[in-house]
Nucleic acid binder design. Structure first.
Length: 109
DNA sequence: GAGGTGACTGCGA
DNA sequence: CTCGCAGCCACCT
């Protein structure tokens, strides 16, 4: 735990997100014990594409289920495309039935 | 060693 | 309903 950097901790949790499910930055931050630092989770995702194996960042959205980081995927459609490909319905850059597909590590784990 | 940055969140108006 | 402000802290230069 303490051996892993904050980034790696975030990556671990994100990779644990089941297919067809999504989580929020705040939920992950809370699970890591840094609830007040939800930004750090998002910041960690900023380097997610540099980590390996690649982190399914498309499964991580903000508290509203909005695809805030879609722009970081290279193309705006990519994030939505990936989610829909996993069975998650996205509409207007927003997760549909977000509360249904929502995955909370502090509960599921 | 110090400063700036940011894929967020919650509350107030 | 929408818009704005402040807090939060690890990583980078």
């Amino acid at each position: 735990m303490d051996k892993l950097s904050f980034y790696e901790q975030v990556y671990q949790v994100v990779r644990l997100i089941p297919k067809g499910r999504v989580s929020s930055y705040g939920a992950i931050a809370a699970y890591l014990g840094t609830r007040g630092s939800s930004r750090m989770v998002g910041y960690a995702m900023n380097a997610a594409h540099t980590a390996y194996p690649l982190v399914p960042a498309q499964r991580v959205v903000n508290r509203n289920g909005l695809l805030t980081g879609k722009f970081h995927f290279g193309t705006e459609n990519l994030m939505q495309q990936l989610l829909e490909n996993e069975g998650v319905k996205v509409e207007n850059d927003k997760i549909k039935d977000f509360k249904v597909v929502f995955w909370d590590p502090s509960i599921e784990l």
